[in-house]
Design a binder for these strands. Sequence first.
DNA 1: CGAACTTTTGACAAGCATCAACACGTGTGG
DNA 2: CCACACGTGTTGATGCTTGTCAAAAGTTCG
Lengths: 246, 246
Amino acid sequence: MPADSSALAPVVAKLTRRSPLDPVEIDALLALPHRLMDKDAASYLVREGDRALDCVALLSGFAHRSKTTGAGGRQILSIHLRGDLLDLQNGLLARADHSVQALSAVKVAFIPYRAILDLAAAYPAIARALWRDTLVDGSIFREWIVNVGRRDARQRISHLLCELAVRQEAAGLCQAPRYEWPMTQEQIGDATGLTPVHVNRTLQGMRSRGLLSTDKRSVTITNWPKLQAEGDFNRAYLHEPEPLAP
Amino acid sequence: MPADSSALAPVVAKLTRRSPLDPVEIDALLALPHRLMDKDAASYLVREGDRALDCVALLSGFAHRSKTTGAGGRQILSIHLRGDLLDLQNGLLARADHSVQALSAVKVAFIPYRAILDLAAAYPAIARALWRDTLVDGSIFREWIVNVGRRDARQRISHLLCELAVRQEAAGLCQAPRYEWPMTQEQIGDATGLTPVHVNRTLQGMRSRGLLSTDKRSVTITNWPKLQAEGDFNRAYLHEPEPLAP
DNA sequence: CGAACTTTTGACAAGCATCAACACGTGTGG
DNA sequence: CCACACGTGTTGATGCTTGTCAAAAGTTCG
């Protein structure tokens, strides 16, 4: 199969951004068996408690992971975009400990874990690339713990937006200063541990201080340095290659 | 080297709890080169920003990972006990994005990343075991995001304590209902996103409701079902084998 | 054009932070 | 052995950030 004709190309693009792979390894990844599907916004890709057999690869659109508390509160754990492997953990762990849900309309590939694990066993470099991807995920989770644990509302929302902006740029998905922000204010609240009402008021403050302007599901960052400062944002935790000097 | 004479036995014990390994793989792990060290409580094992060459294995005692915000706030990200591999991520990622610090007096082994990565490349089962360990770490981070994002003070502290109790039991470190809790109230606050004053008041409430009693750096859980309910605690995210029925 | 979702606004309450002081235990040195 | 410093735990008074409840206004889409 010619490399760029495989639907899995975005996944390989993301992995090779951080882990160099040989052509033979790339071809092996692109040739992974998979089922393609289109899903509407808000549809579930994995449900907490599932015993999944397939790993979900996000080929276009946005998705999020979330957990629900006993009291019914929802906490969004991470946001995902094109090329991300969601749910790698369910191949090695018994049961999905969280849900994965589409934020926008998405195109996904379901890949059998068996095939992924076999590939990892056959190619140490692929095992390493997947492991590294998991480690970066972990780094992002840690930063989110800091975000909801030690920052106030302004900082939390600013930080979330900075992360999405940097990741979209790293994935070549957008042109600064305008980014997609496919979340409702309620979802922003679920990601930052705030109520939608307070998100609304905080966003109004940010707009009036000239940090950004919003338009439907997209945002224009009108003062990037200030937004970054306000969000206490340092991109190191994303472990993305630095962008070229402007 | 005879298996049980290696200082790294606790690490292997933890890995094999979740990932079965062949004797040859176990021997290879036990034979990993390492430097042993004793460290006092509060000493740093890894500093944020370091470019570490060695992975830290915790052989006895307790440690925590933490990050610091621009405003100087500290957030504890996870608690670690005997057998845990801290800092696996620094072998594959460029730079430590967080610090690791001893909570109590500890015994640690520094293992060169090179040796670990070589072993992972040579033995796919070891690569898988390490990957799985990383995935469980990620699962715990996700639960902590929920804890600080969506739970109130009582729930946060109860949940933290439940986690430590279950993990100590899984590691065979204690006899219920008494557990080590080697954290000051300030550190509990740093782990739960609260101020030490509020931790103090919340703990008083828990004591007066008969959930627990504390004694120096240990705690006796006097009402486990109620504590678990109060902390909205469900051990699934720890991915530990279930305990034998009592 | 109406239903459902999302954003916005207002009034009010509550949980938690902040500041400051004091109590208690432990280890250290004079 | 006592005096002292230091870390930790405890208490009180006060205020701010954020949550809660409720409703209206704007938006999207069939």
